[in-house]
Design a protein around this nucleic acid. Structure first.
Lengths: 107, 107
DNA sequence: TTTTAATATAATATATTTATAATATCATAA
DNA sequence: TTATGATATTATAAATATATTATATTAAAA
């Protein structure tokens, strides 16, 4: 099985990538960024995550290459920089938000 | 954003699910099971993961509802019991094994 | 040029995960 | 029945991740 040999080589990298989605806080950050770029203060308000914790999560996501930011005066505007993130998010939405997606009228 | 409210409710469950893919060992176990059911000894031989560690990873995957097993005499045969696992695995293959999938002749 | 808003970094405590070692269970073969 | 193979469970140690507290940086406003 060559695909499996291939995965064996990539298993550490792939699992590091998956770890970025394996925290409720980071998952919510990525959900919000999937809707469009946001500055840090906006992300804090949207999620309720404390500033220091937010900064550390964003730092990890940046180091792992999932997000990037640009400065706008005093604001740092974060956005998803890796389209692979959306592939995983799509699968997660499909699994966890399907009822809603299938039936938009449902409250 | 109702989808986001929805995700907020599911964020803990979704991240618990994602944690199952966030370890190189579990990722390889799931890769092998994605190819078809395997007993524990086969999984140990295929992956090189020590018996105790294998048993614990399988236990976690079972508890989280990703896999199940049936007994065949002395063997426990594990298989993927949740189709959502394949949705995530497909995305991971797409991200990390695409070169191979796109060009099967490549060594 | 001092203050303030926005954000990051560092240090640390706490919790969680993972691996390892030892032992137990359970089914079958001898 | 006893021994053996297959696997699980328990206990514990080691590593990693997360949250918290305190402090630093940086840009802009006063």
């Amino acid at each position: 099985m060559q695909t499996l040999d291939h995965m064996q080589e990539k298993a550490v990298a792939a699992s590091e990538f998956m770890k970025c989605f394996a925290s409720p806080h980071r998952l919510m950050i990525l959900c919000h960024l999937a809707q469009g770029e946001k500055n840090v203060s906006e992300l804090i308000e949207l999620t309720g995550i404390p500033q220091t914790s937010m900064s550390q999560h964003l730092s990890k996501l940046k180091n792992e290459g999932l997000v990037d930011f640009e400065r706008d005066h005093r604001l740092l505007i974060y956005s998803i920089s890796n389209p692979d993130v959306l592939k995983i998010m799509d699968a997660i939405y499909d699994i966890y938000c399907k009822e809603f997606i299938d039936d938009p009228d449902k409250k």
